[in-house]
Write a protein that binds this DNA or RNA. Structure first.
Lengths: 136, 136
DNA sequence: TATTGTTATACTCTATAACTATA
DNA sequence: TATAGTTATAGAGTATAACAATA
């Protein structure tokens, strides 16, 4: 079939994102985590006592949609909440959450390495800076 | 906030894809088209009498999900169906569909050019081949 | 007055199974 | 037996509006 779409960077960007996301998702599923769960665990691990609203701003997830995401992590025993003041609550990893976070990071780092290996040599080092420019 | 995620190519890939998709979507909305509609119009225009199943395979959209997509385009008067044999139907652009397709292509090409301009010079030419390697 | 956390809701996108009819 | 088109449905993901309580 004649298909001019792959020559559009925007189209190839979406296809590449979909393909790699599907691959990473299936690997994280072994930890019973989705990508967004892993992102949240990593950010909470790096920023103890971060609030749900701050996480949402960082990840471009709306406040309202953070509620079920964090409830899942809390129900799984991976995070705890503690009141910072009357209206904000700080989020921290439990010890189980720290362990799960380490496992997720190992999977992600292995995946990222393999993903970059798929990019032919002359282009490889340009991928991250090029992508970064597109969303910042 | 400490955020190691942007250093992961896979994460930046998703963020870049989301950001550019949102931008393109808002531009195509002026034609009352979504991205997938534009993709379908372009592919049908390039491949008259293509079938719904073949389009789905090309775009990684399941057969069942093609039904409402094509119904929208047909209801909008942009495509026609004609039976090829007893079970397959060929899809073609109507004259309105051809006009809409040209307008969509103009918007997409302008968008792609601007998008590439945002990528700093030494990285720009490497983006498309790097992305292509990730989903093929 | 702005922000946090929350509930409820709706809409899109996608995945799966099943069915009919035809190649 | 495989394929085309279709229906129905369920699950994510996401967007919006509204509310109470607090900064």
């Amino acid at each position: 079939m004649r298909d001019p779409l792959p020559d559009f960077p925007g189209y190839s960007l979406r296809r590449a994102a979909n393909a790699t996301a599907a691959e990473l998702s299936s690997r994280l599923a072994e930890l019973e985590l989705r990508q967004v769960d892993a992102s949240l665990l990593i950010l909470i691990g790096e920023n103890p006592d971060v609030t749900a609203s701050a996480l949402g701003r960082q990840l471009d997830i709306q406040r309202a949609n953070m509620v079920p995401l964090l409830k899942r992590l809390e129900d799984a025993g991976l995070i705890d909440r503690k009141p910072l003041d009357g209206k904000s609550q700080g989020l921290v990893l439990t010890s189980a959450g720290e362990e799960k976070c380490k496992q997720a990071q190992a999977i992600i780092e292995a995946f990222e390495t393999e993903m970059l290996q798929r990019v032919p040599e002359p282009h490889r080092e340009h991928l991250l800076p090029a992508l970064y420019a597109l969303w910042n």
